[in-house]
Amino acid sequence: MTELTVNGTRHRFDGDPLTPLLWYLRDELALSGTRFGCGAGLCGCCTVHIDGAAARACSVAVGDIDGKVVTTIEGLGGTVLHPLQKAWIQLDVPQCGYCQSGQIMQAAALLAGNPAPTDPDIDDAMSGNICRCGTYPRIRAAIKAVASGSHAGLAPPPGGQLAATAKPVP
């Protein structure tokens, strides 16, 4: 029996304790925002926070995190968008988008420990997260925008879709 808290909700898991957290989140808790990319901790697609630290959910067994607090992309901002999500929207960071949950979770862990990262800091923190579409320049820009506090003042991109859809995450 494993107990853990995911996005503020306590869960009990009595399945195979070797089950990777990734598949527990996706298949049992229906939290599909944490995505499968490699299964070996090599790509960062499945990055979540465990007790606030970035971790690869594909490589963490549920049985090893008894009592821990897990945050996924669905719970990152609570009831509102996290500043990184806002910056991601304002800079139109994603292309295919598949890796972006992991990128945002990794960036959030970076900023939590280092509110003003340098370029080398960003390289160190983010180079475990692969993006095959090559959105790296905008990821870097979005992290810097949040770090400098300028994301709030970024002009929204032209077009009205942002205002129409950028509502708090339910």
């Binding site: 996924t72 929207i89 991109p157 879709q161």
Partner: peptide, 17 residues
Amino acid sequence: PLARLDTVEKVTARPIY
């Protein structure tokens, strides 16, 4: 340079894949 229509759903982890 209009904003993409698919950004918000990709940033908020909607089950789009």
